[in-house]
Amino acid sequence: MKGEIETLVALALLFTLLSFLSVGGAISAMPEIHRQAVDLHHWMSDREFVDLVAIAQAAPGPNVLFVTLIGQHVAGVPGALVATVFMCGPACVVAFFIARAFDRFRDRPWRAAIQAGLVPVSIGLICATALIIARSANHDWKTFAVTAATFAVTYWTRISPLYALGAATAVGLAGLL
């Protein structure tokens, strides 16, 4: 029981920090969650982490909810709720109080500078996310081919990525990977 409480506290601390650090969306925080959950706390294997990210990509809802799956896998339903509340909660409180004050600093130059400055950092973070997931999901030429095909469909066509995810899952279920 004591161990469970400690795990929930660790989840709460991790996601409170990430609630403030996830510039440019929740996907930016994925490498840090991977570092902590897999390398630091040994809550799950590398493969389990990638499985959960993949399931979250295939499910409806905001990207941020992959933290719900992470929390669920680490500490059951309480873990899922703690991860979700602490990832979204601090940011919600900030948004709540800034919502009506924003008009006062909307046109200040420092506002534009902060916003412009966050863009390249968040791009670097999302590229890091792509690298970490691709490294774990690709272990031979067949999985690499699936990754390349999904990239091509998503990047060069207007076909919904959902079809690519479905097709790749079907290829896997057929035992071809």
Binding site: V50, A54, A130, V146, T147, A149, T150, T154
Partner: peptide, 26 residues
Amino acid sequence: RNGLTGLAAAAAGLLIATAVQMAEPL
């Protein structure tokens, strides 16, 4: 396991596409 192997590989492709789309303007 088989299904997840395919899904994970596809999810990686999706994330790479997002990353490239964002980095492209720079």
